[in-house]
Simulated assay, not measured.
Amino acid sequence: MTTTHSLINQLIQLQELVVANMQKKVSQPNARLEELTKSITSLSADLPQQIKSHFNRLLQKHPEAIVPVANELCTGCGMGLTKSMVQAVHKAEGLSRCPNCARFLYYPDQLIARERVSRSYGEAKKTGIGRFTAPELMMVDLKGATGEEVLGEICARMEQEGFVEDKDHLLDLALQREAIISTAVDNGLAFPHVRGVEGGGLSMVVGIHKKGVKFGGPGRTLTRIFFFVVIPTATSAFYLRLISGLSKTFRDKEVSESLLACSSEDELWKALIKATRKSFK
């Protein structure tokens, strides 16, 4: 008999596949997605029919059908939960749903709390791409020889700048996501990310690897520009629009070369702002 914990894990994995499918469609409109679609069908095949139907109905409205509880809140809609409901979610004796948005709820083993929002974004209202990143999240000289090493450098910068508490845990989550399907796309771009990072807003590191590194398996060109994003549940829908805008902007070789030509993080910040001025108002 399926336990609640295994059912929750199955729903989370299924959701990751569905979102990965959405991401590939917006970042690579012509990508072949047969294997991903087959995995989604296979993983959902043995779900109880009532749960499967509700899960699919939720995904038609939101990118997230199952969300973590954080600080006694449903991270999907922000509604406060009663202590008894939080305890029920924690015990996982049965699947719980948010009474407001009807999403399935789970209690994560560990959350990465993003801090220092005011220091990063300042008191003044930010516009454009500056709403989602900051000068200190520019990395102009990534040195890793492998994709994992590059992601490790990026996660270390996020911890160093106070955006996450545990770089190793963040790296583990990013690698788990890459194992589903590579976030590398054409033109030497990649959009590695971790979703469900509660405690702050959507945040993005922009990293440049001058030589390029293999990041998407055999046959793919070397990846040279990394857009690494940590995504709270509440901003998951916008994340898809963000990568769509970035992908369209940097498919232009001249525009992507403007980032690769930067020799300092200050230059990279200015080049990013200039390149995305029309894409992100």
Rank of each mutant, 00 (worst) to 15 (best):
H209I: 11
I129G: 02
Q110I: 10
Q176P: 02
M85G: 02
V194G: 07
H209M: 10
T133I: 10
F104Q: 03
A179W: 01
A124R: 11
S96W: 01
G130S: 14
D186F: 03
R177S: 13
L171P: 05
T133P: 06
E165G: 15
K126P: 03
L137M: 13
I180H: 09
D186N: 11
R114H: 09
K126Y: 01
R103G: 05
S182K: 00
Y107E: 10
E153S: 12
K211P: 04
S96R: 06
A92M: 11
V150S: 06
V197W: 03
L171F: 01
C155A: 14
R116I: 10
I112K: 03
R97A: 05
E149P: 00
R116E: 14
C98G: 04
A102I: 05
F104P: 08
T133S: 14
M138L: 11
E198G: 04
A134P: 01
V150R: 06
D172K: 15
G147K: 15
H90G: 07
E136V: 12
G196S: 15
V89C: 03
S118V: 15
G152C: 04
V86I: 00
D166C: 04
E136M: 09
S120L: 15
D109K: 11
P108T: 07
G212W: 04
K125Y: 05
L170N: 03
D109V: 09
F132K: 09
D166A: 07
M85Q: 14
A179F: 08
K143E: 12
A190M: 07
G196E: 15
I181N: 04
R157Q: 14
G200M: 09
I112L: 15
G144S: 10
G128W: 02
L95E: 02
C155S: 11
V89W: 02
L170H: 01
K143H: 09
L81G: 00
G201I: 07
I112R: 10
E159C: 01
R157E: 11
V86T: 06
S182R: 04
R177T: 08
E159T: 08
R103D: 01
C77R: 15
G80K: 13
I154S: 02
S96F: 03
R131W: 03
Q160K: 15
H90Q: 14
L105I: 04
G188H: 08
C74N: 03
V213P: 00
A190E: 00
T146I: 10
G196T: 08
I180F: 04
E165Q: 12
K91A: 12
D166L: 02
I129T: 00
D168K: 13
K126N: 13
L95Q: 01
T146N: 09
A156S: 14
D168I: 07
M138C: 06
V89H: 05
K125E: 15
L170R: 01
L81M: 01
L81E: 00
T183A: 14
S203L: 12
N100Y: 12
G130R: 13
G147S: 08
A113I: 15
E149D: 10
Q110W: 09
S84Y: 07
L81N: 00
K167P: 07
T146A: 05
C98W: 06
N187V: 05
L105G: 05
K83N: 12
L175K: 10
R103A: 11
K91Y: 08
D172N: 13
T146H: 08
L175D: 01
R195A: 10
V213W: 09
P99Q: 04
F191K: 08
L137H: 12
H209Q: 09
A113F: 14
L105V: 02
L171Q: 05
I180T: 11
P192G: 02
R114C: 15
